[in-house]
Design a protein around this nucleic acid. Sequence first.
DNA 1: ACTGCATAACTTTTT
DNA 2: GTTATGCAGT
Length: 713
Amino acid sequence: MNVEVIDSLLSTLTPSQREAVESIDGPVAVIAGPGSGKTRVVTVRGAYIATKGIPLRSILALTFTNRAANEMKERVCDILDRCGFTFDRSEILFSTFHSFSLWLLRRFADRIGYRNDFSIVDENDQKAIINEILKGTGIDSKFSVKRLVEIFSAIRCNINDYYEIEYSNLPCDEELYEIFESYRSYLFKHSLMDFDDLLLNTLMLFRDHPSILNWVRNRFKYVMVDEYQDTNRVQYYIVKNIAEEHRNICVVGDEDQSIYSWRNADIRNIMDFEKDFPDAKVIFLKENFRSTPFIISVANAVISKNSMRRWKVIESVKTGGSKVKLYEAIDERDEARFVVSKIKELKRPYRDYAIFYRTNYQSRVFEEELIRERIPYVLVGAFRFYERKEVKDVISYVRFILNLDDLFSLKRIINVPNRGIGEATFRLIMERIEQGMDVMSALKSLLSSPLLTVTRKQGIKSFIELIEYMRERVNVFAPSEFIAELLERSGYKKMLEEDGTGEAYSRLENIKELLNVASEYDELEDGLRYMIDRITIATSVDNYRESDCVTLMTLHSAKGLEFPVVFIAGVEEGLIPHSLSEDSYEIEEERRLFYVGITRAKDELFISYCKRRSVYGKLKDSKPSRFIKDIPDKYLEFIKLEVPSKVNSKSTSKRDSDDSGTIRRGDIVEHPIFGLGSVIDIYGSGDSAKALIRFEKVGVKLIALSFANLRKL
DNA sequence: ACTGCATAACTTTTT
DNA sequence: GTTATGCAGT
């Protein structure tokens, strides 16, 4: 092992960064301001621990996104490689809370009464299940299904004492209680866990099985948690349980960047770290390597108005830069014109710019304006591959095949493609199951039932045969073969092929893409199961920065990113802070959200607000956000749109247009009928590729690239 | 079982 | 203003 490499790496760190890296024994909290090199500290620290002779498998790093986990793991491996350190990559466990819980529960769920091959339901599944319960019980709830999902999540995330997991926080409202209990028993009965269950059941496992907890404690003697300010109460107890004995815990976070309390993140976790671990060392990373001084001054001015925070001021390491620009727009159209004209004026590569807004609907006017000016852009977070209907259908098939108790998945796919098994027939099946039959027997019993016509029976028969055939092949076929076979045998593929509509076409493409994903699991043991798990707890791929595009996203999505030039739009009362935020606690979170936006900017920051804005089709007067008043004028430059922005409307863009003719995400294209549009997403490839395009005039359409005569601009 | 029209809803969204 | 949802009608 080459110690010099790690030594020279350490010498590039600031004293406080270095202290954070080198404090590996005992509890440590690293309060890492924006742009303070947090990721670097975490990764170097991981490698540093390993070079101190601690086995890699003793290190557990928990994050919130798969992206962060993978990125950090890569970087740690990289450092270790450079040190000439020999190690096995698979020994390193950098994972999200949810994957970690899943990893444990796949082994031990049976200890808490579950089956080890339970399935996982996502948020849409939760809604569907609750809907079913409401219909089944006839309860006409005063809460929307969406709200119920939130309430149930809050009930289970905000526990105060993990020895009373099941009993704390139950709803007093009788009706609510009934729906909640029905929901829980529905999941349990069908061997399903939602995202919250994964965490909560891990905690139960720890509580009820000290031997397992002990095993976990001794396996993971060094624990790191990233984005600690975003942990919820259950996650907090999980961490605490694991780290309590060896006490080598390092949490990294920044309460000023906590913006997910609406998802039950609890700021107390990071604020009270010293109370939980009285011998904790608290290290502040205050130097900011990202932004120019005016931006930092504005950020400090804004965040200093919050009371729920440790007192700290971030310091800019950079020099130079200009004041933060403030623009008062007439309405949102004017605001978009302003932003677009600035983008053209500054003449930077498009990838340098980001436009942030509070709510997704605000993106529209920016999109229209960017299309008009032929500026390529990408919308981040708008479309999710795994939430598409066809992908979910296939997953439901696999889930049911793997777990016959997963009647929820069964319901989704039993009549797709159409087998003549509608609502009524399905109810017959359910009745039989409720009488104690298992699914397959229930289905079979219907074949001899006088209640059904011959064609119905035929449909059921073919379904039974399909499932039995596929079940026999779960461990025979590789995941991609398995799914291909399933698509053929079920007639799903045929159904789409015969449909012939553009929509069906793009679905076929998505399914091909799913097969691609599946083939990545072909070599793995239990690959099919593993793949379904990963897909359910993963979100879409984020390759949005591959081409030279302006980036559009919500302030929430912006966390963790940085851009040379940032526009924050719609900084008005009612948007930031949002009108649904009422109490001071919520207002503080809104302020943090604004702070997160500000601190993404490296060189230039533009803040804008409108005097008028149309909300749901109605024009309303707007006032600048109270947060703007918190910024001293001396850091600001008030600007006006000098020239009517039409001047050089035609392409100031010195974008090296890519002549390959390939159409990619973000490209601006012209359609013979629909006119100018921007490519939001591409499905499939080759002749059958399809593009989702937002047109300036006619909205979003799905276009087959080989048929439509699109001209790339 | 599917189609079409009226009606409600609508902040953010790491897993 | 747009989009998803639900109910009535074929």
